[in-house]
Write a protein that binds this DNA or RNA. Structure first.
Length: 838
RNA sequence: GCCGGCGUGGUGAAAUUGGUAGACACGUCAGACUCAAAAUCUGAUGGAUGAAUAAUCCGUAUCGGUUCGAUUCCGAUCGCCGGUACCA
C-alpha cells in the first residue's frame, strides 16, 4: 500500500539529525532551572530476539513529549542506553561457549539500529551500557560506598537453590516454586551471600513516597511491599531454661488466648528446644522443610504440618505453661521467626490447633463458636482478666503499658521488606570489589584499583559448589590484600542485574567522566528525572532498589535530590489478538481462518473460534516485529499508530488494520501538498476556528500525554481541510508544527517543502487565540423529566428566562408537557433546560 | 484468599466539575471516479419497531441506590487483567 515515499524521507531525516547533532544537549546555563527537563525511558535489556512492539510504545511517548518540550523552549535531556549484564547472555554462553560480551554487543548494535530506525530524539552521545568497564567501575564504586556505610554484609540465610543450574536464585527469579531459567524445582540451601541492608531505609522509602508524582497504584504496591506494621515484641520464658523466646505480634491484646507457640524450622533456638526424646523427630521435620520450596510450604500445603519440641514456654500474662511447636508456616524471614498462636482468632493458628488437638480459648467476644471456626473480626475482650470489656485499641494500649511496666515486652515495628540478597554466583555481572584477607578480614579495593575487571574464563559453567565461574580462575582469585599487602583471595560473587539499573539515570548526565560517577554541577543541573516512563512490571523491585541506592547517595551528600524519579508513568502492555476454542484453549494464529468479517474458524477442524486478547507469544504466532511494520508502513505510521491505539497507561491489542488507518491519515496529509498549492489567502472563519481549537487540544493533550485524543483532533482538522479547496499557509504550517512531535520525519520534509530551513525540531510551538476556540453558538438541550426531547442552536449567553421560554415554546417539548403541571425547572446556562412535570 | 486496575457499538476507543453516550479510526454498506478492479474522494453506519432523513422505546457488565438528570457518585454481584503468597 506504499504511496508516499516514507523510506526515502525517513532515511534522509535520520541522517540529517545525526549529522547535525540536532538532539545533542549541553548544560546550557542560559536555560533557567524551570526550563530544563530530564525525560527518561527505562532502558532495555538487549535480548537476542531484538526489539518488540512494546518497546516503541513508551519510547514514542517520551519522544513526542521531548520534541514538544523542545518546541516550547525547554532544554531537554533524553538519553538511551542498555541494561547489558544479565542471564540470557550467560545462558547462551554456557550453551555455545560464545563470550557474553560478544553476543551482548552484537545485540546492542542491533537494538541501537532498530531504535534509531524509529527516529527518536535521543542524545546518542550519552549512550551507556552497564557491562562496559567505564560504567561498572562506578557501579563497583557505589557498592563500596554502601559497604563503607555498613549497608552490605555477609549472611548465611537459606536461599533458593537450583540443582540444575547449580546456582542460587533470588526470590524474583523463582516462578511457581521453580527456577525461572530451567524449570527445575527449587530447594533451599544455605549459601554465603552478600546482602544489602535495604531494611534500614524502610521508613525513608515509605515516607518519601508521599512526595512523588507516581500512580497511586504503584505507591500502594510499594507501601504493601515494605509492609510496615506496628505491634509489640513479647518475651516468653522457656520452662526449665534461662532462655527466652521473642515473638512479634500486632495483637498483644490477645495474649490471654495464646495457647501454644510456634517457631520456624530455621529458628536458632530449635536445638535447645528439642528435648532428647524429640530430637530425631524434630531433625526429620527440619530436613523435610528444607526440601520444600516456598510454594510447597505455603500454597500447596493445605494441611498444616508441624512437630512438638517437647518444651514449654510460660505465657507471661497468666503464667500458664504452653507447648512450643515447630512448623514451617512460620517464616524465619519475618518478625522474630517465632509466634504466639491465638487459635481462636487466627485462621492459620486455628487450623493448626485443630489438627494437633491444641486448646482454643476465646478472648474476643465472637459471633461464632470458636471451637468450630476462627473468629477473626473484632469483639470486646473476654477471658482476659484486666482487658475484659475493652475494645481492640484500648486493650492493645493497656496491654502494652502492662508489658512495658513488667519488662516483658515493648512496642515494636516490623517490615515485610527483607534485606536484599545482592550477590550472584554467575559470570556475567559486575565483580564485587572486595578481598578476603586472613589477617585483615574483608577489605574493599581502593578507589584507584577500580574497575575490577571481569576476567576471561574458559568455561561459563558455575563452579557447581555454589560459587561463580570466577572461583575457578586461580590467578584471578589469588591476590594481595589492599590493606596489608599479604596474600588474599578475591570475592568471587558478582552483582545482580539490578545493580546497573540502580543508578544509570545518573551516569547519563556525565557519561564520560573518569574522575567521578557524575559531576556535581551536572547532577544539579538536571536532577531529578522529571518524567520516567516504563512498564508496570518494574513497579516494585527496580523502582525500590533504585530509590534505595539514591537515598544512600543522598545521605552521603553525593546527590542533591532525595528521590531520583519525580514523576512516573507506566505504559500499558501491547497485547495481540488470539483465537480461543470453546474449551478456552488457544489456537496459533496461522491455524485460523477468517471466513467472514469477525467470524473465525480453526482450519483443521472448522471449529468456530472466539477472538480474545492475549499476550504476544511465539507459540501463538501473534508476535509483531517492528522491523516488518516499519518496512511496510514506515516509522512515522508505526509511532503514530502506537499512540493512537488508546491511552498510554492501558494495555491494548495490536491490530495491523488499525495501523493502516493511521497510514492513510499520514498519506492524506502528504497528498495535501502534492495536490494543492499553499496560498497566502486568509482561511475561512470555520477553518480558522477549527485550527485554533486543534492547537488548543493538541497542546493540552500532548502536555498531559493523552496522545490518542490529540491525534484524533488532527484527523478532524485534516478531514475538514479536505472538504475545502484551498490550503492557506497559516493552516498548513501550523498543522506541520503540530504533527512534528508525532511524525517527525514527514513533518521535517513538509516543513522543508514549505520553504523553510531545517530543522522543525526547534521551531516554536504554535499558540492559539482563546477567543477563536470558543463558539458563539451553543446547542441547548431541552429535556422533559430528564429525557432529551429537543435541541436548539442558540447564541451564547441567553438568560435563564430566555432559556425557559425557549423550552416552553418548543413544539416537541410542548407535546410532552401538554396537560401536565411543571413542578420543577432546571436551567444550566448555555447547556440545558430540564422541565420536571407531573 | 488478599491488594490494585478495568468492563462503553461488529472492533480499537471518545466523553471538563454528574448535563446531547459513541468523537476519531478500523470494518461494513452505498455513491462518485474507472472498460473493470485496486487506490482515492463523498456519504451512511449502537440496537429494536417503521416506507421514513417521521416518531417511539431500549442501550455504557448485572442488580439496586442517590439525583431533575449517572458511563461519571454510592452499595452489592459477575467477569477479565496485573501484583502477591500463611507477614503473626
Amino acid at each position: 500500500m506504499s504511496k508516499y515515499p516514507f523510506k526515502k524521507i525517513e532515511t534522509k531525516w535520520q541522517q540529517y539529525w545525526e549529522k547535525n547533532q540536532t538532539f545533542a544537549v549541553t548544560e546550557d546555563e542560559s536555560f533557567p532551572p524551570e526550563k530544563r527537563k530530564y525525560v527518561l525511558d527505562m532502558f532495555p535489556y538487549p535480548s537476542g530476539s531484538g526489539l518488540h512492539v512494546g518497546h516503541p510504545e513508551g519510547y514514542t511517548a517520551t519522544d513526542i513529549y521531548c520534541r514538544y518540550l523542545r518546541m516550547n523552549g525547554y532544554n531537554v535531556l533524553h538519553p538511551m542506553g542498555f541494561d547489558s549484564f544479565g542471564l540470557p547472555a550467560e545462558n547462551y554462553a554456557i550453551k555455545t561457549g560464545k563470550h557474553p560480551k560478544g553476543t551482548t554487543e552484537k545485540n546492542i548494535n542491533n537494538f541501537r539500529k532498530q531504535i534509531k530506525s524509529l527516529g527518536f530524539c535521543y542524545d546518542w552521545n550519552r549512550e551507556i551500557s552497564t557491562h562496559s568497564s567505564d560504567y561498572y567501575r562506578w557501579t563497583q564504586w557505589i557498592f563500596l560506598q554502601l559497604f563503607d556505610k555498613g549497608l552490605a554484609y555477609e549472611s548465611h540465610t537459606p536461599i533458593n537453590w537450583c540443582n540444575e543450574c547449580l546456582t542460587g536464585l533470588a526470590n524474583e527469579e523463582v516462578k511457581d516454586g521453580r527456577c525461572e531459567r530451567c524449570g527445575t524445582a527449587v530447594v533451599r540451601k544455605s549459601i554465603r551471600q552478600w546482602v544489602l541492608r535495604i531494611t534500614e531505609y524502610a521508613d525513608k522509602l515509605l515516607a518519601d513516597l508521599d512526595s512523588l508524582d507516581w500512580p497511586e497504584s504503584v505507591k500502594h504496591m510499594q507501601r504493601n511491599w515494605i509492609g510496615r506494621s506496628e505491634g509489640a515484641s513479647v518475651s516468653f520464658k522457656i520452662e526449665d531454661s534461662d532462655e527466652h523466646l521473642e515473638v512479634y505480634t500486632t495483637r498483644a491484646d490477645t495474649l490471654f488466648g495464646a495457647t501454644y507457640m510456634v517457631v520456624s524450622p530455621e529458628h536458632p533456638l530449635v536445638d535447645l528446644l528439642a528435648t532428647a526424646e524429640k530430637k530425631a523427630e524434630v531433625a526429620a521435620y527440619i530436613d523435610s522443610a528444607a526440601h520444600k520450596s516456598d510454594l510447597e510450604r505455603t500454597d500447596l500445603a493445605k494441611d498444616k504440618t508441624g512437630v512438638f519440641t517437647g518444651s514449654y514456654a510460660i505465657n507471661p500474662v497468666n503464667n500458664k505453661k504452653i507447648p512450643i511447636w515447630i512448623a514451617d508456616y512460620v517464616l524465619i524471614s519475618y518478625g522474630t521467626g517465632a509466634i504466639m498462636a491465638v487459635p481462636a482468632h487466627d485462621t492459620r493458628d486455628w487450623e493448626f490447633a485443630k489438627k494437633f488437638g491444641l486448646p482454643i480459648v476465646e478472648v474476643l467476644k465472637s459471633e461464632v463458636d470458636v471451637q468450630e471456626q476462627a473468629w477473626t473480626e473484632d469483639g470486646l475482650h473476654v477471658n482476659s482478666d484486666f482487658l475484659d470489656g475493652l475494645n481492640k485499641d484500648d486493650a492493645i494500649e493497656k496491654m502494652l503499658g502492662w508489658l512495658e511496666e513488667k519488662k516483658l515486652g515493648k512496642k515494636a515495628t516490623n517490615y515485610k521488606l527483607r534485606d536484599w540478597v545482592f550477590s550472584r554466583q554467575r559470570y556475567w555481572g559486575e565483580p564485587i570489589p572486595l578481598v578476603h584477607c586472613p589477617t585483615c578480614g574483608t577489605v574493599p579495593l581502593k578507589e584507584e584499583q577500580l574497575p575490577l575487571l571481569l576476567p576471561e574464563v574458559k568455561s561459563y559453567e558455575p563452579a557447581g559448589t555454589g560459587e561463580s565461574p570466577l572461583a575457578k580462575i586461580d590467578e584471578w582469585v589469588n591476590t594481595t590484600c589492599p590493606n596489608c599487602g599479604g596474600k588474599a583471595k578475591r570475592e568471587t560473587n558478582t552483582m545482580p542485574q539490578w545493580a546497573g539499573s540502580c543508578w544509570y539515570y545518573l551516569r547519563y548526565l556525565d557519561p564520560n567522566n573518569d574522575e567521578r560517577f557524575v559531576s556535581r554541577e551536572k547532577e544539579q543541573y538536571w536532577m531529578p528525572v522529571d518524567l520516567y516512563v516504563g512498564g508496570a512490571e518494574h513497579a516494585v523491585l527496580h523502582l525500590l532498589y533504585a530509590r534505595f541506592w539514591h537515598q544512600v547517595l543522598y545521605d552521603l551528600g553525593l546527590v542533591t535530590t532525595k528521590e531520583p524519579f519525580q514523576r512516573l508513568v507506566n505504559q500499558g502492555m501491547i497485547t495481540s489478538f488470539a483465537y480461543q476454542r470453546k474449551d478456552k484453549s488457544l489456537v496459533p494464529t496461522d491455524m485460523v481462518e477468517e471466513t467472514e468479517p469477525d467470524h473465525f474458524i480453526e482450519k483443521a477442524t472448522n471449529e468456530e473460534l472466539e477472538r480474545v486478547v492475549a499476550k504476544m507469544s511465539k507459540s501463538l504466532k501473534n508476535v509483531i516485529n517492528p522491523d516488518d511494520i516499519i518496512r511496510e508502513f514506515g516509522a512515522d505510521s508505526m509511532r503514530m499508530y502506537e499512540m493512537f491505539m488508546g491511552p498510554l497507561e492501558v494495555s491494548k491489542p495490536w491490530a495491523t488494520t488499525g495501523l493502516s488507518g493511521v497510514y492513510r491519515f499520514i498519506d492524506r496529509v502528504w497528498r495535501l501538498q502534492e495536490e494543492r498549492t499553499v496560498t497566502d489567502e486568509e482561511p475561512s472563519e470555520a477553518i480558522l476556528k477549527l485550527l485554533h481549537k486543534t492547537i488548543k487540544k493538541v497542546t493540552h493533550d500532548t502536555d498531559s500525554l493523552n496522545f490518542n485524543t490529540a491525534i484524533s483532533q488532527m484527523m478532524v482538522l485534516v478531514n475538514e481541510i479536505y472538504k475545502t479547496e484551498s490550503l492557506p499557509r497559516v493552516v498548513w504550517e501550523t498543522l506541520i508544527k503540530l504533527l512534528g512531535p508525532y511524525v517527525p520525519h514527514i513533518a521535517e520534509e513538509l516543513w522543508e517543502l514549505a520553504g523553510h530551513e531545517p530543522t522543525l525540531a526547534n521551531v516554536p510551538w504554535p499558540t492559539y487565540d482563546e477567543k477563536l476556540t470558543i463558539d458563539s453558538e451553543v446547542q441547548i438541550i431541552l429535556q422533559v423529566n430528564g429525557k432529551v426531547r429537543s435541541k436548539s442552536l442558540q447564541e451564547k449567553g441567553l438568560s435563564k428566562a430566555e432559556m425557559l421560554a425557549l423550552a416552553k415554546d418548543d413544539e416537541r417539548v410542548q407535546r410532552w408537557i401538554e396537560g401536565k403541571t411543571i413542578v420543577k425547572e432546571i436551567v444550566v446556562p448555555d447547556k440545558l433546560v430540564n422541565l420536571v412535570v407531573k
